[in-house]
């Protein structure tokens, strides 16, 4: 990198510096890498007073369980939560990006959830990808048309978004390519088929809170036990008008068994070649205030 370009950090968005190198490596026969995925069963349904979202808590990397108790229900606004499935980094980034999308924030503030959500899908992603001046809608749109093909579906995040606003409860699904659905009940992720089978047979309008939670838990459990990409515990989030209950680890159907209560002990000491001990100094706290210094 030349000296002149070193100083200023970029304003944001993606950087494509390493793409050519990585393509070259791939062409040389190196396997492309696998990312952390949330194999996932995520669901949501509308009940008589609001929305219930549910998720499992397994994160996978290929066939390895990378995290046994991860969080898939993300906070978006006090009245909106969002379940993410797909590449873990993308679901996280997309939900964080929403905070930075002023349209989304504005609509949320005015309680227009549907509008907020339709402002979300790919537009916000492209916008922050290219950090164009957002006030210039026309230049942004031109940019958007140029690049939308590059991004459609490449940011691999499938979302189930639920919330309650002035017009009542809403539930939306957002696909990686940016299309949205508004439904009374929805499922996403690799366990979506198992979960949907329960919704299809048991969902009815005007469910009570308890019935709703029970159905969501059943659907997630169907994913946990029938889909290998989903597993561990059930997280539930109940959103009603002006209130929400985030029930983290609402159900623990897979507790760890056969743990030795005494733990593991090592009779022999590990062979150490060299030890270096660095004592840490106490940080001196400087208390400001008191008498001002004389001029």
């Amino acid at each position: 990198m030349s000296k002149s370009t070193v100083d200023l950090p970029p304003k944001g968005g993606f950087s494509f510096d390493l793409c050519r190198r990585n393509d070259m490596l791939e062409k040389k026969g190196l396997k492309p890498q696998s990312f952390l995925k949330t194999g996932t069963t995520i669901v949501g349904l509308i009940f008589q007073d609001g929305v219930i979202l549910g998720a499992d808590t397994r994160a996978t990397e290929g066939p390895i369980v990378a995290d046994k108790n991860c969080e898939k229900i993300h906070y978006m606004a006090p009245n909106i939560y969002c379940c993410g499935a797909g590449t873990a980094a993308d679901t996280e980034a997309v939900t964080v990006e929403a905070f930075e999308n002023e349209k989304f924030v504005l609509y949320c503030r005015h309680g227009q959830l549907t509008a907020a959500i339709t402002s979300l899908p790919y537009r916000s992603r492209i916008k922050s990808c290219y950090s164009t001046d957002t006030s210039e809608e026309t230049s942004f749109q031109a940019e958007f048309h140029n690049f939308q093909l590059n991004y459609q579906g490449y940011v691999q995040a499938a979302l189930v978004l639920g919330g309650v606003d002035v017009t009542g409860p809403h539930l939306h699904t957002i696909y990686p390519h940016g299309s949205t659905d508004s439904l009374p009940f929805a499922t996403m992720g690799s366990g979506s088929l198992a979960a949907m089978s329960l919704f299809e047979s048991k969902y009815k309008e005007g469910l009570t809170r308890d019935e709703g939670i029970k159905l969501v838990v059943e659907a997630i459990c169907a994913g946990i036990f029938n889909d290998l990409g989903s597993g561990s515990n059930v997280d539930v989030c109940v959103i009603t008008k002006g209130h929400k209950d985030y029930l983290r680890n609402h159900l623990l159907p897979n507790p760890r068994t056969y743990v030795n209560p005494n733990g593991f002990t090592f009779p022999k000491k590990t062979e150490v070649l060299l030890t270096k001990i660095t004592p840490l100094k106490e940080k001196v706290e400087v208390i400001e205030g008191g008498d001002a210094m004389e001029e």
Binding site: P10, G13, F14, S15, F16, D17, L18, C19, R20, R21, N22, Q33, A89, D90, E92, A93, Y154, V155
Partner: peptide, 14 residues
């Protein structure tokens, strides 16, 4: 670190 790595989402550091 997460932000620095995600910046290179489409051409990551290995």
């Amino acid at each position: 670190v997460s932000a620095i790595l995600y910046e290179k989402r489409f051409g990551p550091y290995f």
